[in-house]
């Protein structure tokens, strides 16, 4: 039977674990705030760029660019954004499930992938997908240089007609509780996303003077657009990861509390039983002597 000392030891160990999960929760909360701020800070550039691009596209009758070219989708590349570490609930598992679903839906085509984040890299490698490149340890501090590097790689492959389409699989940050898994098409560039606010403003079209030929500007703007799309996905994914970790650690902390309560109750019962037993022994010993 477990002695009192055993119980004390267990309780102490659970308490230590609880302290760690609580600390991790606070760290995740702080990082989540930073990630959200970064995502918000990156918005104006993406918005202005999309607006400029739409304005130019609408002015050219038949925009011709290698990144706009449609081909039958025979060779598909998917960029999969996961986390670098676990301990974030089902965050990584959900994204990977989504990625596998996507791959299954495109069975028979030539699939390749670029994992971003250690967890996705390990899993996709083990599943035997062909990795064109891998980016690990880049999500702790999302910066534009990494997004640019990835963008350069995929646009280059696309322009050389080595792949026919590029998708990006990631977890969009909506609220802390509800992650939103998305698969979006990156290439070929289709309609440029417009939010309602800017769509209104644009109804009055302006006739611009172009310092450079429209096609040349388009050629410069399109790669930038891909970069901002990837950057946005990375920022969203990192916010979603921290949110998932925060929730996971919060429930772990709560569970540890429950375990401690149960153990303490049990320990007290055992102690009570021991005391009762001792009293009975004393009392019965005394009655024998009498």
């Amino acid at each position: 039977m477990a002695t009192l000392l055993d119980f004390r030891r267990r309780i102490r160990s659970v308490k230590n674990t609880q302290q760690i999960t609580r600390a991790m929760k606070f760290v995740a909360a702080a990082r989540l705030r930073r990630a959200q701020e970064a995502a918000i800070a990156a918005r104006p550039y993406a918005k202005e760029l999309a607006r400029m691009l739409r304005s130019i596209m609408s002015r050219i009758d038949e925009p011709q660019h290698s990144l706009l070219a449609h081909r039958p989708e025979e060779r598909i590349l998917a960029i999969v954004l996961t986390g670098e570490r676990g301990l974030a609930g089902a965050f990584n598992a959900n994204i990977l499930r989504k990625a596998h679903d996507f791959f299954r839906a495109n069975k028979g085509k030539k699939l390749s992938t670029i994992p971003v984040g250690k967890k996705g890299r390990d899993s996709l490698k083990k599943a035997g997908f062909s990795l064109i490149a891998e980016y690990v340890n880049v999500l702790a501090r999302v910066d534009f240089a990494t997004a640019r590097e990835i963008a350069l790689l995929v646009t280059d492959l696309y322009a050389k007609e080595e792949i026919d389409s590029v998708y990006i699989v990631f977890s969009e940050f909506k609220t802390v509780m509800t992650p939103n898994l998305v698969v979006t098409k990156l290439l070929p560039v289709e309609a440029i996303r417009a939010d309602e606010e800017s769509a209104e403003k644009e109804s009055a079209q302006v006739d611009y003077i172009y310092e450079q030929p429209e096609e040349q500007l388009l050629g410069k703007l399109l790669p930038r657009y891909i970069e901002t799309q990837i950057l946005r996905a990375m920022l969203e994914s990192s916010a979603a990861e921290h949110a998932a970790r925060m929730t996971a650690m919060e429930s772990a902390t709560k569970n540890a509390g429950d375990v401690i309560d149960a153990l303490t109750l049990h320990m007290n019962k055992v102690r009570q039983a021991a005391i009762t037993k001792e009293i009975i022994e004393i009392v019965s010993g005394a009655s024998y002597g009498a």
Binding site: A38, A41, A42, P44, F144, A147, E211, E227, L231
Partner: peptide
């Protein structure tokens, strides 16, 4: 005048004159 970079909005200010480093020369 609004200046944005991919990572942040750097500046939003009223100006009376702006000089831009255009690709083909200053504007």
């Amino acid at each position: 005048l609004v200046i944005v970079t991919p990572e942040r909005q750097l500046l939003r200010e009223k100006a009376v004159e702006v000089q831009l480093p255009g690709e083909g020369g200053y504007l």
